[in-house]
Amino acid sequence: RPLSTAIAVEICRTIKGTNLDIRRVPGVKLANPRTQEVIYTPPEGEALLRDKLANWERFLHESDELDPLIRMAVGHYQFEAIHPFMDGNGRTGRVLNILYLVDKQLLEIPVLYLSRYIIQNRADYYDLLLDVTRSYQWEGWLLYMLEGVRTTADWTTAKIRAIRELLGETTNYIRSTAPSIYTHEFAEQLFIQPYCRIGNLVHAGVGHRETVSKYLKVLCDIGVLEEQKAGREKLFINPRFLHLLTTDSNKYRSFA
């Protein structure tokens, strides 16, 4: 679906876990977290907010020759300046960035974690947003967002490369250490998520429940997985994969 106000509302509801909607209550102000000085007062009134969001939608979907990355950056400024929700605007806007790149076929899947760059450079992010609002200084803002895409793309590529290397090493280790349970398809199932349940692998066709349980025990014994209790369930964690997904590091413990 093309990006729209309705999708933005749906995203923010998911993020906040509440049935929220476009702001109706006045009095929202953005303040400097250190000094509490009010630095920006977004527009107020549901009708005005919806009108500005309609303009945001039209801008995103205009069919001119403006580069999609530039349009994403300008559209992100528009959305954050409108500030349509009582809370969750930043996170919603960052999700919309990635969905826009998918919509424009610059990404096949929403794998570019642009939030990492923005969070790491948060002070510049807010300063440059305000520079556009106060004095129309677009160049600094656009360069900031383009640099964010570039550095995040480099970081993501390196992360994917590390995960692929880990998959290869894990596959080779299982094949050499536990050949009786090895199949390439089984090894790949361990990288669908950083954890699995017996039921997941049964559903994937790895084997019957008793067989899968035996396979997972072997993988725990040889150090590929770690078993953890989660209520009444057993989770089988892929610790090296989890480490790659949750840290900046692309290094992991060797199987040797």
Rank of each mutant, 00 (worst) to 15 (best):
L3Y: 05
C12E: 13
I22D: 06
R23V: 04
V25D: 12
G27H: 05
T35I: 04
E37Y: 01
P43V: 15
G45P: 02
G45I: 03
E46A: 13
A47E: 13
L48R: 15
L53I: 01
N55P: 04
E57D: 15
L60K: 02
H61S: 09
L66C: 11
L69P: 07
I70A: 15
Y77P: 03
Q78H: 15
E80V: 00
G90C: 01
G93P: 13
L96A: 01
Y100D: 09
V102Y: 04
K104D: 09
K104A: 09
L106H: 08
E108A: 13
P110R: 01
A123M: 09
Y125N: 00
Y125W: 02
L128G: 06
L128D: 02
L129V: 04
D131I: 00
T133K: 13
R134H: 14
Q137F: 13
W138E: 09
G140S: 03
R150T: 10
T152L: 00
D154R: 10
W155S: 13
T157S: 12
T157F: 11
A158W: 00
K159N: 00
A162L: 05
L167A: 11
G168N: 15
I174S: 06
I174T: 07
A178Q: 08
I181Y: 08
A187Y: 03
E188V: 12
E188H: 10
Y195A: 12
R197N: 04
V202Y: 03
A204C: 07
V206F: 07
G207Y: 08
S213K: 15
V218C: 05
C220P: 00
D221V: 02
G223T: 06
L225K: 01
G231V: 04
E233F: 10
K234M: 10
F236L: 07
I237F: 01
I237D: 03
P239K: 01
P239S: 05
P239R: 02
F241I: 01
H243G: 10
L244Q: 02
L245S: 01
T246M: 04
